[in-house]
Simulated assay, not measured.
Amino acid sequence: MRETASPPTSRKPSGDDGQAAPAARRPFSARLRTALGPLPWISPAIILIAFVVLWPVVEMVRSSFLRIRRSGIVKGSNGTDNYKKLFDEPDFTHVLWNTMVWVVCVVGITIVLSLALAQLFNQQFPGRRVARWALIIPWAASVFMTAIVFRWMLHHSYGAINTLLVDLHVIDEGKDWLGEPSTAFPWMIGVAVFVSLPFTTYTLLAGLQTIPGEVYEAARMDGASTWRTYLSVTLPLLRPAILVAVVINLINVFNSFPIIWAMTGGGPGYETDTTTTFMYKIKASDIGESAALSVVNFGIIIVLVLLYLGVNRWNKEAD
């Protein structure tokens, strides 16, 4: 006798057999509780960011549209007059140019030198540990104090650098290196590179140490030269570390104040000013205009970072 096939049993919907229902079918209150679950743990950080970062930015933007006396008393709205006054400043274009030269030179030279130092410190050589420790010194020392030391070393009468150059008969007499913009600006760039090297070098060194040795072995087996291996293997794999180093250096160098202020004060006149020191100077006469320049600075650094991230993403997609 032929058995009759039993009718197919209906499958229970997900969630009726004790299993968890899909997230899309869960009640809104349950999904909300899941989303807000980490909030008690991250709320202190959120509150700190709100007070330390977001609130000052909001106040900075608000102040740029106010008429504020030098005593700090708000006299009312000033519309966009603060921005008009800023852009009409005769030295503003020159200060912007100084800022671009400052950022490009310091960040570019720092990255190039740090790539070389990171490659050196990634090798085995006698005294490597001591050399690594020595590199930390410019980073550990106060940036302002480092700038003061270099200012005294460059003093035209009794500075150590002038004394050494005169003794070596490189120059006939002491030179006022910081008194002329043509020599002061390169020296400030050199000091900024000096204090930026430790962080950048260690960032790139950390990136180098994450590259597996197998890729270098494969490159050697393929007959690649040392230079070709560096260009085709090392640099592409270092891209995340280079990205971090460039972005952080862009922000730090653009907002750098102690080096310029300690060495030249932006002088003579506004010849060695960047937007950061120029903003500090005009604050003495017009707080609203200074706040407007703060907003412009904030916008410029955001644009620079976004441009670099966009170029980096485009290069990555092109590869």
Rank of each mutant, 00 (worst) to 15 (best):
Q19D: 14
R70G: 15
R25T: 14
A21K: 07
V296D: 03
G213N: 03
P90Y: 09
A241C: 11
D16E: 12
P240L: 02
E173C: 05
I148Q: 07
F144M: 15
V53F: 12
A35Q: 07
S290H: 03
R313I: 11
R67A: 15
L154N: 00
R62S: 15
I301P: 09
N98T: 06
L120Y: 02
D222F: 00
P40Y: 10
F254E: 08
K316R: 13
K175Q: 08
A140Y: 10
G299E: 06
D16I: 02
P40T: 13
G190E: 04
V61Q: 00
I46V: 15
P212S: 14
F144N: 06
R67L: 14
V215W: 02
N252M: 06
N312Y: 03
N297G: 09
P13D: 12
H94M: 09
Q209N: 10
A224G: 01
L178R: 05
G159F: 01
L309C: 15
Q209K: 08
D172T: 14
H169V: 06
A284W: 12
L205F: 09
R25C: 06
S142C: 10
T9Q: 13
I109V: 15
L39W: 10
A116Y: 01
M221K: 00
T163H: 05
T275C: 04
Q119Y: 06
P268Y: 05
T229V: 00
L204K: 05
V166L: 01
I109Q: 02
V170G: 07
G269E: 11
T200A: 15
F92M: 07
A241Y: 04
L117Y: 10
S225I: 01
L250M: 15
D17W: 04
P126W: 11
G207K: 01
L154I: 07
M221Q: 07
H169I: 07
C105D: 02
R69W: 09
H155N: 14
D88L: 09
N297S: 12
P138F: 13
R69Q: 14
T110R: 04
